[in-house]
Design a binder for these strands. Structure first.
Lengths: 185, 185
DNA sequence: ACCTGAACACCGTTCAAGT
DNA sequence: ACCTGAACACCGTTCAAGT
């Protein structure tokens, strides 16, 4: 053996840069390799294959979403809004890469961080324990759908911030209703 | 000139079949051409290029969503549920193709049909006119996000019907609140 | 007008070889 | 252990040619 010229981390970093600059279509084993000044085949030892590279990217995206640390003890409305904004920023930076998050199991390890943060926010709002996971899923699904729509261009021509405000207000309405126990049926 | 061997309609039909059977990755100009027993280059006259082919596909998907005719005068809850189910069926049939709908402007011609149907449903529920478009957008965004999550595998391991039920109930709650005018301030 | 055939510049990936 | 180089079976698309 001899010192490694590149690492998995470097490969993912380079790919993320490439994706942000030129989109997912430009993410090719050969282009990533060129960016690292290495042969395409050199990547295979570090990421397995193209699919492995893509998996590594969404893993990274998840991790980026997972850092709302700042908004920790503030009120639940601010926490939820901050997390939603976080997701939107990522979606705008990697518009087509973002779509791959829909192919990632929501229950996975990497998604634990943000989910627990949302749970805490919902608990502090008074949402009953047994409704936490369903409500969290509803919220994240809406946020993902919104971010994908915004980044993908589905919302082109609309006042996106106004739409976001409307959605955020409706979500808060649902959380408050859940806290009152209106979801019982 | 001489009689056309293939038409745009046939090309899209063949591609949709191919996509349903083998996924978007298998949708290649060459594979579509082979299915029609024609040279790859023969497609270009009918769909422009690969992007044109893809555009034609999402156009078709939109059209498939647009046919909830049956549930016309029944109650608004049934109409909304039927439309959501419609979208979910399409997403399951074309899991990766479905993601392309996020890149399609929501305000486009092809989306008019389903949107007007939702408007009617919301009106009959008592939702004020000025809130129609925002609420419809919130609903469709959630449904798209849900369908993409289900089809993409994000919801793997969950009781998806139960999740859908939960979401549907929350949506109805929002519609009822809007009808009462709770969204004002 | 519509289709074919050969060609070009790309892909991901294998395999044997170098250090 | 890590990287290279040549090769293979694919892509989308151009261009000139056939009917």
């Amino acid at each position: 053996m001899r010192p490694a010229r590149i690492s998995r981390t470097q490969v993912l970093d380079a790919t993320l840069d490439l994706a942000a600059e030129a989109g997912l279509a430009a993410v090719t084993m050969r282009a990533v390799a060129a960016r690292l000044e290495v042969t395409p085949m050199a990547l295979y030892r570090h990421v397995g294959d193209k699919q492995g590279l893509l998996d590594g990217l969404v893993e990274r995206l998840m991790a980026e979403i997972a850092v709302p640390a700042e908004a920790k003890d503030t009120d639940w409305r601010a926490v939820l809004r901050t997390m939603a904004d976080n997701v939107r920023v990522i979606a705008r930076r990697y518009p087509d890469l973002f779509m791959l998050l829909f192919q990632r199991r929501a229950v996975t390890e990497g998604a634990q961080g943000p989910r627990q943060t949302v749970y805490r926010a919902l608990r502090s709002a008074g949402v009953p324990e047994e409704e936490l996971s369903s409500l969290e899923r509803l919220l994240s699904t809406l946020v993902y759908g919104f971010a994908a729509s915004e980044a993908g261009g589905r919302f082109a021509g609309l006042n996106i911030e106004a739409e976001f405000e409307y959605g955020a207000a409706r979500i808060e309405q649902l959380v408050e209703a859940a806290a009152r126990g209106d979801s019982a049926g």
